[in-house]
Amino acid sequence: MQVLVVLAVALVAFFGVALVSRAALRTFAPAHQKPTFRDMPLTASFGIAVILIYVLVAVFAPLLAPFKESEVVGAQYLPWAAPYYLGTDKLGRDMLTRLIYGARNTVGIAFATTALAFTVGSILGIWAALVGGWLDQWLSRFVDALMAIPALIFSLLLLTIFGTSVLSLILVIASVDATRVYRLARSVAQGIVVMDYIEAARLRGEGKWRLIRREILPNAMAPLVAEFGLRFCFVFLSISALSFLGLGIKPPTADWGSMVRENATLITFGDITPLLPAGAIALLTVAVNFVVDWQLHRASGLKE
């Protein structure tokens, strides 16, 4: 019975959020963007709304959170009751506050990592496809060698070497992920560089950078965007996994992955609090993929 109620509430919430956000986007979009939002599916508007909410929460975390990030406010493992609406963790810190700050840290790092991986990976991949020959061979075989090492183990190794600061975390995960992006970008670009318009641009005497940026990249966007959605979620999982193993974001910084670990014991007592950060990750993952699917659909010109 309870399950049904939860499901019903979730469905109502989904449609409510989706419809409101679509109406808002249609109203506030600039005139030339209106057609884009008119045909938007509800899943996409839901995704956009969720992402916007996460971004707002991350940006305004200090204003929204009732307490300080690592402030010990009471006894440990307090139940859900005012003023600790979601209880406290094992050190007596407010769970809601930690969740809000976690958005800032986890989402921010994940975004920076994915963006870096994509910039480096896709530019190198397209460059290799464009130039070919030795450069392509060297880069690709090097990337193959990196990809042969299991990602998590490789990240653990690198993090042990370089230490676990936020910056090294971003760089390590980005470089591991960039290999996958490189592969994809290279294979997509190989199909594009043989087109006549690339030949025309080469004959015009265009430089490599312009060829990559203006001629190839716009045509390779659809698969790259789709991959972005996937990678973004995987980065979450990597950070969470690393935090869980103690090599990710350092305490007392709030991070959803470590929050699951720290409070895992509560599960045995039938308390669902540790699932909240996990749920936050899941929801964002779903939202990002909704938006990516929609973009992919538009970019590839597919009809239903």
Binding site: D196, Y197, A201, R214, E215, N219, M221
Partner: peptide, 18 residues
Amino acid sequence: MIYQMADTALNPKLRLRE
């Protein structure tokens, strides 16, 4: 040079202006 297949000779993502 002018190509046989205008479809593949013009970058589909660029506007005529460019």
